[in-house]
Design a protein around this nucleic acid. Structure first.
Lengths: 343, 343
DNA sequence: GTGAAAGCGCTAACAC
DNA sequence: GTGTTAGCGCTTTCAC
């Protein structure tokens, strides 16, 4: 046999998948040219473009984005962290976030922190280790330590569903205190006197409740009893919550709930007790999930533009990733009370 | 100055983050040793372990999993595909999947295919390109072309929430036809005669409906009218569905709904029309979401162990990724009818 | 127990 | 337009 050229010494490694090299060889061009033909077609000649396209089709080549991300330090991965996905409140946000990102070629990694922020550390490590192009934090409080790590990592961060005085980086949210105050004013305007609260025990819900309570006080209304239930809030907890509330204060005539599901529970419990909604008891929810409008009686609730939050957050991340400066890094997206039959 | 050794010619690239090299230099060992100290501590001496731990703490080093994944061809990333996250049916599955994976050091990537499988192609490309260690398909039908690409990619796949005759790879599901049949038998046993269906228009829901219809026929019951509503199913669509069903067949005395939310809509609509549930109208849902048990009347529904599905799927993927053979690659996880007040 | 060398598959930088 | 070179940050292989 003829002496072989220093053979590539076929490696013991690799996934065995088709690589850009294979495509390039097949197309008769250099790897970088094949790369350009795929990423920036306007930079190569029509002939090359065609040859590469053919080679891709023939081999079924799928670019390895891990390798690309490593080389370009742009992973096109975005991490989203929610307390728990089954809370339902953030579904719309996560959905629109996923879609908006996908439209730009980014992929979403989902992390669940738990409401009690103990897994936070391991989660942060897992996330930062993946070098995402951005992190979207939704509905979670984070420890000072966590904030520091995020800042140190230098990854764009968007906090959502809240307006914190000292954001880590960017922010798309609204004021929970304002919500509480607005609902108290609304119920007072409707002539309600003896207000009550059934709320999940997470930080933001508590802030709404506290503001609600304070506003009622300012309005000269009687002390507002607050029943806290475990998070995530469920229909059953809403029922239990109302039962507890009535035990404390039998004459309540309006209840502010920290979620629509909780409100549905309150309405359900009221019905089984022969309490008419809204006649005997006004009920206000939070979130304006789809079912709120369709209930009978329909549910008065606080509408949050969850989908808009997701889209905005995606836009912030993508802008940053593409090197654009984000025009408005802090957005108060507001909220609105949707008056319906229940209050 | 003394002539420098061929200087590393400080690169124009890189993220600027602390790397394993930095840690190793600080600890006074070779990079590979630092790597071992972190990944397989039992392979290095106590002294080295300590020095490396110190260096990590001092620098705040977070391993770059992209690089690790590229080198080891194990990304520790798992992709999950759902039709849309806002459908709620799969929430429990996604939640337990995320958690079970996180417990093993894997991270979840979420993809939404849409019920109408047109985005499927782009999504598959995005997923495969990330070289995940596994893919979990939940509640979606996939084109023959899509199946082929998945198989060609050689990535472990777990299909869930269905029992397909020819799985792509692994499977954790149950038979939708069996569900339809079982519910028909249940209602018949309860003495119901004029059955109806309100169903989302996705493939699996249709299969349940068809089997339900066929079983009713076999039982000698009158022809079963089926009202199809758009997916995702919502409370409002349930209300509309019942209205439509009553228009077609005013004397229905039992309705099988393709989701609990739809069932809640049907119950709501029935109540506003003065139809008693279950006296005038029996209602059966599907999914057994948390609220089903807490409604008044409580909702009879088909219970699916969503969390168990997620856990099992995670186990399948992890086992495969670690090179173990999966004992039972096809699991029929079954279902059960939960008899409650509504039927 | 520790290390040197050689990539994993891709792209940034700089030629030509 | 196209190619060469040199990494991105890590782990595998093989040697000591």
């Amino acid at each position: 046999m003829a002496p072989e050229p220093p053979s590539p010494k076929r490696s013991r490694r690799g996934s065995g998948a088709v690589t850009l090299h294979d495509v390039a060889r097949l197309a008769g061009v250099a790897p970088i040219t094949a790369s350009r033909a795929l990423k920036t077609p306007q930079q190569v000649s029509e002939a090359v473009r065609q040859k590469v396209a053919d080679a891709v089709a023939r081999t079924g080549y799928v670019p390895n984005l891990l390798a690309g991300g490593l080389a370009s330090t742009r992973s096109r991965l975005v991490a989203a962290v929610v307390p728990t996905i089954s809370g339902m409140v953030f579904l719309e946000t996560v959905q629109s976030l996923t879609e908006a990102l996908a439209a730009h070629g980014y992929q979403l990694m989902l992390g669940q922190a738990g409401y009690s922020g103990n897994r936070e550390d391991a989660l942060l490590e897992a996330i930062i280790g993946r070098r995402p192009d951005g992190i979207v934090l939704t509905g979670i409080m984070h420890s000072a330590e966590g904030r520091r790590r995020l800042q140190a990592a230098g990854i764009p961060v968007v906090e959502t569903w809240d307006l914190t005085p000292t954001p880590i980086d960017m922010l798309v949210g609204f004021s929970h205190s304002e919500v509480g105050r607005a609902v108290a004013l609304y119920l007072h305007a409707k002539g309600r006197q003896r207000l009550g609260v059934v709320t999940g025990d997470d930080e933001r819900a508590r802030r709404r409740s506290a503001a609600f309570q304070a506003a009622a006080h300012t309005l000269g209304l009687p002390e507002v009893p607050i029943v806290q239930v475990a998070t995530p809030t469920t229909l059953q907890r809403g029922r239990d919550g109302l039962a507890q509330l009535l035990a404390q204060q039998p004459r309540v005539d309006a209840v502010f709930c920290s979620s629509d599901l909780l409100a549905l529970g309150v309405m359900t419990e009221a019905r089984t007790r022969g309490l008419g909604v809204p006649d005997d008891l006004a009920v206000v929810g939070f979130g304006d999930l789809e079912f709120a409008a369709a209930l009978a009686p329909s549910l008065t609730t606080v509408h949050i533009k969850g989908a808009a939050i997701g889209r905005q957050a995606a836009q912030c991340i993508v802008d940053r990733a593409e090197g654009r400066t984000v025009a408005t890094p802090v957005v108060d997206i507001g909220f609105s009370i949707v008056p319906r039959q229940s209050a």
